[in-house]
Each structure stands twice: as structure tokens, then as C-alpha cells.
Design a protein around this nucleic acid. Structure first.
Lengths: 162, 162
DNA sequence: TAATAAACGTTCACTAGGCTAACGTTAGTT
DNA sequence: AACTAACGTTAGCCTAGTGAACGTTTATTA
């Protein structure tokens, strides 16, 4: 109990870490997990402060970058399941960041497009996310950030198709 | 518990990615998440093939490295919540990899210690995990692996105390 | 010494994210 | 015309992470 280090500051029921096994300490999958969790928590905190989710950013980005799309297409672009896309678009549409209307050319589909308000929102979120990224990578030099991101990208490509 | 292993390639409802927004593509938190998920899936597949979980490895490692401990102490060492530790130790005890007995010196506690069978199991898991790590980091040179792990370690320390 | 607080093991329950299944509707294919 | 597949949608599942509460036991304090 002499250890003052605390994994996460507000946990009620998960006090200071004590001698984590060194075998675990350098385990890539564990490192990835822990970092992902913490990065996610950080991002979620910041984003929820403006009533946003990371998925909002993903969808708005996709619409802005690649233009209008059906929900299924958006799902493919972003990696968000189409079953989850429904509620997500409900939120975005309700706040007028996107418009959703039946596709006259294919009545199975909806056409989703970003609105002006959506573009404004996207800019806002982009700025926020830039800040989050800075906070996340604070201890790294620009070169190291590039390096880390490139390594993660390569890893990602490798795992995508193993 | 016996979970059908499922890779990215056999998803039933989430087909090929189409033009993921470049804004997202290099986003650290997203990269971390995706890699963590995939690495986890890989590890879980391999481990479940021998009826193990990553937590088993964590607990056995801790017992081997730092000696017997109470459940709460194990929880602190490994980062596993003590509410989850209960079932975990049930499994390990049932397979005779650990022994759990009331602590005579403090009757609130249990003393948990690793058995010989547990040590054998730990060796087995360690070998497996070595393989998993190799597969995970296949595209990287030894130097790059070091680099990646060190960067992740630094990131982890940063996020631990932000 | 008595009262109070804290730690322990345990059970229960909740949340978020990832994922599958199925259904009715519409479009393509044979 | 029959069959297959894509679409949007709803519902539900599983895992991982987390908090709450309870009865028991030890430590602290009044």
C-alpha cells in the first residue's frame, strides 16, 4: 500500500497498481489495449463535453470527404456497423448535421448528405480532435509522432489481412 | 466461454472497407483501438485453443514473479478488478493451477499460491504468447519491435497520469 | 474499551462497444 | 416468374470494464 501510483484517477474500486508482472509489462497486445482504453477515455471525455461522439466525427468526415452516400455505404466507409448507423444518423439528423431522405433511384436506400451546419460542426470537431491528439501525444516529438503513427499503420495493415 | 473464433475476414455483416476517410486513417486513438481489437482477437483465438484466457496468464505470471498474494493484492498487481478475480481464480483453482485458502494471519483474506501444475501451465502459456507476439509483430524487424514497444510504453506512462 | 472506519471476498447489476440475426421492402439475376 | 441479394431497421447477444452493496474481519480512533 506504499504505492501512490494510480492507474486512473477516479476509479472507486480499483486502487493503486502494485508490481505489475514484468512479463506483462512489455506485452504488445496489453500495451495496445491499455493505450487504446486510455486514449478512448480521453477522447470520449473531451467529445462528450460538446455533446459529440467519435462516430459523429467519422460519419461527418466521410460525408465531407467522399460525398453523399447510402447508410450501408457510410457503414463500409467508416467501419461502423449498419445496425448502429441507424441511431447514429438519427442523432445527426435531429441536430441538422445531416439530411436523410429516401433515394429516388433506389428505394431501398436512403441518401445521406451533410448540411452546412454539419460542416460547421465537423470543423469544430476537427479542431477538438486536433487538441485531443496533441494531448495524447504530448510526450512525443513531431518525428516520434510520425514514427508511432506509421508503425501503428503498418501493424494495422498487417492485422487487417492476416 | 468457449467462443467461436472469428477473424476479420469472416464477418457476416461487415463487408470490405470502402474509402475510409483519410482524416480517420491516421488518427492515433483509432489506430490504437483497431490494433488493440485485432491483437486481442488474435490472442484470444490462440489462447482459447488451449482453454486459456489472457487473464490466466496475468495471474499466473504475477504469482510466479512476486509470490503468493491475497486476491485484492493480485487484483492490484494485474489490473483485474477484484470482482472479476473471483471467477477467474475459481477457474484456475478448479484446474489446480492455483491453490486458494483462508489466510490464518488475516481471516478477511485468502492466500493464493501457484502450484507445480500452475507453473507448467504458465510455461506453456508463455511459449504460446511468444508465438502470438511473433505473429502479431511479424512485419517488423527486431529493432522496430523494440521501438514500437518503447513508444507504446512511453505513451502508456503518459496516459497513466495525465 | 467501545465506536468507527477501512479492507477483504463475493455477488449482482449496469454500461459501452462490437457483432449477429432476422424481417419487410426493393432491386437485380436467372 | 422465381430466386437471390442489398437495404434500413429492430432486437438481442457477448465481452470487457466498472461500480455498489453486503457480511465478515481487522485497524484506527475517541
Amino acid at each position: 500500500m506504499t504505492n501512490a501510483a494510480r492507474t486512473d484517477s477516479e476509479h472507486e474500486d480499483m486502487p493503486a497498481a502494485a508490481a505489475p508482472p514484468t512479463r506483462l509489462h512489455r506485452l504488445p497486445s496489453r500495451l495496445l489495449n491499455q493505450n487504446a482504453n486510455r486514449a478512448d477515455r480521453l477522447a470520449s471525455e473531451r467529445l462528450s463535453a460538446v455533446g459529440a461522439h467519435k462516430w459523429h466525427y467519422a460519419v461527418l468526415s466521410s460525408l465531407e470527404e467522399s460525398g453523399p452516400a447510402s447508410q450501408a455505404e457510410l457503414s463500409r466507409r467508416t467501419g461502423i456497423y449498419r445496425s448502429d448507423m441507424v441511431a447514429l444518423l438519427n442523432e445527426l439528423a435531429q441536430q441538422d448535421y445531416v439530411q436523410r431522405a429516401p433515394d429516388p433511384d433506389d428505394r431501398r436506400r436512403n441518401v445521406v448528405l451533410i448540411t452546412d451546419a454539419g460542416r460547421t460542426r465537423l470543423d469544430e470537431l476537427a479542431r477538438l480532435i486536433k487538441q485531443i491528439e496533441d494531448e495524447l501525444l504530448a510526450p512525443f516529438s513531431p518525428a516520434e509522432r510520425e514514427l508511432l503513427i506509421d508503425l501503428l499503420l503498418r501493424l494495422n495493415e498487417h492485422l487487417e489481412t492476416r
